[in-house]
Design a binder for these strands. Structure first.
Lengths: 211, 211
DNA sequence: GGACAAACCGACCGGTCGGTTAGTACAATG
DNA sequence: CATTGTACTAACCGACCGGTCGGTTTGTCC
């Protein structure tokens, strides 16, 4: 076995464990001892691979951001008409969040808390990336005439992204609320959203005018 | 000065300081020493009034929940037609979150993280309260014929609440995104949302049918 | 096999954590 | 005036924090 192989394996394992714990409990709640124990290595060994707790955290976040970024690539270039593209994006985005829920949680935690530092910037970049991608899609759909031209694509994107993010981070509690039938069914959630988003909430028969 | 007056004053001051710090940095990130120093009392004095850090936190959260609950009372019984009632609720809810941002942040922090315990239950009660209240409003609007009868009022409520919560907790970062003109203008945000929510996103001329 | 470096560990460091103790100040009660 | 109870503090406790150190193992190269 080459010398660096064993090394990277352990390093990856430590990082992986750290991501789990940081995502679950947050930076301050997790001690290096806890990570060491969970990873099955000595605490000193972690400090051999990462020069500080902060660096370990930053690298955890960076890995999460990379994963999130690369999975976005496959998401944006959907096919079909405007509505299918938007719904496709929402579905893919939500699906990706749940599939990589650890990474998403790690990033979201950092986006919502707004303490300064490198971590904050990293997480915000991912957020901004998703956001801008969505704005581009919406603007294009609008140019094609599918969306009302009076709408602000930036606001529409915020609405879409927010709808997804809220569902992701509130899923646990949503499941325990009365009458929620979409609690653990993201597709159903997106479908119901698209129904409103597309048709609006006015009954069809009197959707002529009336503000 | 009566003996109990001084007491309650100090107690309230400690609680108030604790709420500030817990809301800003979270439970684990804030030490009792930090609270003591910020409040200008000895750490031991805090333990004289609160038997543990957990109890101090629980009571902080309870106070925040009480405040949030009482301000909800004045919110639900709006006047006007269905759309005005819904918009009124959104506006009031958002306004309340920002006005009592410390309390809201404290509660939201506890809702999103889902560690077990009394704290979690307290915060979820507030959430559930807002939610149920909103469901009732929506259901009533639906009965009055303002909303399409095929819509699920539970989903609609989730959408509305989520839209507000997302805006509140992402406001900071939204302000720094390109093209966001509603970043620090909750009313504008609600207005744009209502525009979509009410009219739907389809251009009026071809909103007859097409799914 | 000897030299060297990286991987890894047990033991330890100063400092801070949540929490306790011993004791002071003081007003109310008898 | 002695007693009692409450508000309050400085000093302290064991446990644990992030981080370091000296030393051992392991694999590579010559």
């Amino acid at each position: 076995m080459p010398p660096s192989s064993r090394n990277e394996e352990t390093l990856h394992h430590i990082l992986d464990t750290a991501m789990d714990l940081f995502a679950r409990d947050g930076f301050d709640s997790i001690s290096m001892s806890a990570i060491a124990e969970a990873a099955g290595v000595s605490k000193a060994n972690i400090f051999h691979h990462f020069k500080s707790k902060d660096e370990l955290y930053i690298q955890s976040l960076r890995r999460a951001c990379d994963a999130s970024h690369s999975s976005l690539e496959a998401m944006a270039n959907g096919e079909g008409d405007a509505w299918q593209r938007i719904e496709g994006f929402l579905r893919a985005h939500l699906h990706q969040m749940f599939q990589q829920s650890r990474d998403s949680r790690l990033i979201l935690r950092e986006v919502v808390e707004n303490r300064p530092g490198t971590a904050q910037r990293l997480a915000q970049d991912v957020f901004r990336n998703n956001f801008n991608r969505l704005v581009a899609i919406i603007a294009e759909c609008q140019r094609s005439g599918a969306l009302r031209s009076t709408l602000d694509p930036v606001f529409v994107s915020t609405l879409l992204l927010g709808t997804n993010v809220f569902f992701f981070q509130s899923q646990e509690i949503l499941q325990h609320l009365e009458g929620v039938d979409f609690g653990n069914d993201p597709d159903r959630y997106v479908r119901q959203f698209m129904d409103i988003f597309q048709h609006g909430t006015l009954p069809i028969e009197n959707s002529q005018e009336e503000v």
